[in-house]
Design a protein around this nucleic acid. Structure first.
Lengths: 202, 202
DNA sequence: TATTTATTGACAGTGGACTCCCATTTGGCG
DNA sequence: CGCCAAATGGGAGTCCACTGTCAATAAATA
């Protein structure tokens, strides 16, 4: 590597074309996945729909799995969490993070998020990948909690808390997806996340 | 079908042989998975190790995935939960269930559980399957909670609670596996599950 | 023992993910 | 424009899960 990517790079025609190609492949893949399911969609079909050769598909994505999402949201949340005052109770801190730009981000990507999430809940093969990502999300959130409370990241209570939080998130998002995204995701968070702070009183 | 299976069937030589073959395939598969990983193990290898032809493998297991575990424990927990008095707080009820025969069951299968769980945490492809099972566990536990509290199974709070509980379980089991099962799993439950009842006070 | 039926192994596919290679095209640049 | 490097397409090839068929064998049954 002789050149470093700078955020202000003018981006020549070549780069722009590549980005567009990558995006086109990804978009067509998602469309086909949504239409016929992940397993039932072949790389050849994706390539054809994106108007590239199968070889080119593999140049952009090392494996078919790689075309599926990595979730930017949970890591972003872990980040946002770090900006909140440490004396704020964790659930409050999360809700406050979601009320900020983080929430707008979700609002913005609503449709794509809906589609992606639907796929990942529907298809077992993709689900696997998703779970791996989720694990990292948990670690990120655990790290935030640990940082805020001066505990260790390896603290089991911290890990359990992070796991519970992510689990509730997942449950709410699933509910949201099953309702075709008609409900307000943010409202669901506001309504059900506090369950964790007040304790499971069943 | 002209004959029906009766629980007291004396089980002819044919049936017994089949059972043994099935078990042998499963055992060898697990051994190889543990040794080389799920993906890296081919059906041919499993068949050879189990001393059957590849065709026979597929006669016993429709797909390679089908050779992996279904978890009997979480459903068993949901069952046991139903036997506890309804006025007992949920986390207490769970712990009490685990203190009974349910706990002995776990104790008994310790080694196999350790192996199976290790595989399912290690290998993404199997993890997918596991997650699907987990989903059903959540539903089972949600059903128990709903039944105990007279709420609906579709109640989002109930679903969130079940998800949180399973998430903590998973976290603890993972921790247990990572420590090679040296710690006492039951003790981990006792120590960290109450986190959920008293609320996340971070 | 003779007949029937279930289980098996061998073998020849199929399809799809993924690799390698090479010729062609296309954008970057002097 | 003309050269170079990057990006692409096409094709041949590998690996492996999984299917289907058929003949041989072993168990159940008469």
């Amino acid at each position: 590597m002789t050149t470093h990517e700078t955020s202000a790079a003018p981006l020549g025609l070549r780069e722009r074309k590549k980005q567009k190609t990558r995006e086109r492949i990804r978009r067509e893949a998602y469309r086909l996945f949504a239409e016929h399911g992940y397993e039932a969609t072949t790389v050849d079909q994706i390539a054809e729909a994106a108007e590239v050769s199968p070889s080119t598909f593999f140049r952009y994505f090392p494996t078919k799995e790689d075309v599926v999402m990595q979730d930017e949201y949970d890591p972003a949340l872990a980040e946002a969490l770090r900006a909140r005052p440490a004396d704020e109770p964790i659930v409050e801190a999360i809700l406050n993070s979601l009320r900020g730009p983080m929430g707008e981000m979700l609002q913005q990507d609503r449709d794509e998020l809906l589609l992606r999430t639907r796929i990942s809940f529907t298809d077992p093969a993709i689900r696997a990948r998703q779970v791996a990502e989720q694990q990292r999300s948990e670690e990120g959130i655990a790290a935030s909690i640990a940082e805020r409370t001066g505990r260790s990241t390896t603290d089991l209570d911290v890990k359990c808390a992070a796991a519970a939080i992510v689990a509730v998130f997942t449950t709410l998002v699933r509910h949201w997806v099953e309702g075709d995204g008609k409900e307000d995701l943010a409202a669901l968070y506001e309504r059900h996340l506090p369950l964790l702070s007040r304790g499971l009183d069943f």
